[in-house]
Design a protein around this nucleic acid. Structure first.
Length: 432
DNA sequence: TCTGGGGTCCTAGGACCC
DNA sequence: TCTGGGGTCCTAGGACCC
């Protein structure tokens, strides 16, 4: 729609801001443990496998993103780095508080990820956007306790770049990059891989074409870029030139929902994998019902460890399409287990299983097929009741028999902090 | 010993139709 | 009997993101 030949009228200039939490997971830990201010912190992935978030102090020590924990254990202990297992209950809850707060302060917001939100400020050009953003920033710090940076510019891609600059090079934490001069100056000092949408791989390819900096990319010919990098690449160039190609997506419901976890140990028994996939199916189904969707199909996959060179790598998945979209957990579990029966090979050491609910549709407006039958109304009531009980009484208070009770395959999480804001038993205690 | 989980979008190619 | 060309839809796989 943005690439039509003729343009009957010029599109109005847009203005976007990107709010990005600084070292989000590390900052969440600090909210409840202020003594960790200015101390190095790392947060580990599920199973305490690798480093997925670092405080600035930890970055300075040279601990890279995604580094396997065991390989950096020495640097971590030598420098007294504080180590945490992922605590998604805490991060998710603080994220919700941040997004709710932003919504109170600004009308058009797109929640882009757990720690980022875009604002459309096109109608706010008459006010001082630096002051406007600085106010949002200080309110978020005061209300939730998490520091953020804010970048402002003419397109989402430029706002991203402005945000990176704000984070690294300003004390205010806010940077307004709307005039052509500052756009060129900042892009000139930026590596092409630091642009949103340009990976390492694409960066290397661009460098072969003589494009090194973000400014080089801005000044390149969009049509040539399209030949090597498809419409996605062309769109990036146009966005860098200030032509807004990506709008704000205010309401987003997920089109796919995945539950996928590595096991805490290698698993060889089919019974254990059935149990695990049933648990993942329950989790994914809950998420699906929470956004009022039905799923049209499931993809289940099972794999061994890709890192174990002593065994043959095995990775299989199968799609099953339901005859009628469903949100019924027991039906989903049933077919997930049947797929496992198909792809399970006796004798292999499995490391990970996954279920994806795919092609989700809205439960109130989906295409019924010719032979649709009306669903038993009791079924919906039962599912809602289970969801509500588990939400108020705690996770898995009511569970399906196939989820099992031993959960020998479950993941490791030895260094998790308390779920301060979502569990009554883990509230912060204060000595008076 | 130990290497995350959850998403979106685009393209190529096959199946199928007229 | 001969067999073209144009089109849509679907899926798998590959790219990217946080």
């Amino acid at each position: 729609m943005f690439f039509t030949q003729s343009k009957p009228f010029k599109m109005a200039d847009k203005t976007f801001a990107l709010i990005d939490c600084n070292n989000f997971y590390a900052s969440c830990e600090r909210v409840f443990q202020p003594r960790l201010e200015n101390k190095p912190i790392v947060i580990l992935s599920n199973n305490d496998g690798c480093v997925i978030a670092r405080s600035n102090e930890a970055k300075t020590l040279g601990i890279p993103m995604g580094a396997p924990y065991f390989k950096f254990k020495k640097i971590i202990t030598d420098n007294k780095v504080h180590v945490f297992s992922s605590n998604y209950h805490l991060y998710g809850d603080l994220s919700e508080r941040i997004m709710t707060s932003i919504r109170m302060l600004s009308p058009s917001i797109e929640i882009y990820s757990i720690d980022e939100a875009f604002l459309d400020l096109s109608d706010f050009k008459h006010i001082n956007l630096f002051d406007y953003s600085s106010n949002i920033r200080s309110k978020l710090k005061q209300w939730v306790g998490v520091p953020v940076s804010i970048g402002i510019s003419k397109t989402k891609t430029l706002a991203k770049a402005a945000n990176i600059y704000a984070k690294k090079n300003t004390i205010s934490g806010v940077f307004d990059m709307r005039d052509e001069q500052s756009i060129n100056r900042i892009l000139n000092g930026m590596q092409v891989e630091d642009i949103w949408g340009i990976s390492r791989k694409w960066g290397a390819k661009l460098r072969c074409l003589g494009i090194q900096s973000a400014l080089d990319l801005k000044n390149s010919n969009p049509k040539n870029i399209r030949q090597n990098f498809s419409v996605v690449g062309e769109r990036i160039v146009r966005e860098l030139r200030g032509e807004s190609c990506l709008g704000l997506n205010e309401i987003k419901s997920k089109k796919n929902i995945i539950s996928s976890k590595s096991f805490g140990k290698t698993v060889t028994e089919k019974r254990e994998i059935h149990e695990a996939i049933a648990n993942y199916a329950v989790r994914a189904s809950q998420k699906m019902r929470a956004q009022n969707s039905l799923t049209q199909g499931i993809v289940v996959s099972l794999r061994t460890s890709p890192f174990d060179k002593t065994i043959q790598y095995y990775n299989q998945s199968r799609l099953y399409n339901f005859s009628e979209p469903t949100n019924n957990t027991s039906e989903i579990i049933k077919f997930a287990k049947l797929i496992i029966d198909e792809i399970f090979i006796q004798g292999l050491k499995y490391k990970k299983a996954e279920i994806m609910l795919t092609n989700l549709v809205d439960e109130n407006s989906y295409q019924q097929n010719l032979f649709s039958y009306s669903k038993n109304p009791k079924e919906k009531k039962l599912l809602n009741t289970i969801d509500q009980l588990n939400e108020t009484l705690g996770k898995d208070k009511i569970f399906y028999a196939s989820q099992g009770t031993k959960k020998t395959w479950t993941m490791k999480s030895n260094k998790r902090s308390n779920r301060y804001t979502t569990s009554w038993h883990e509230l912060k205690k204060i000595k008076l």
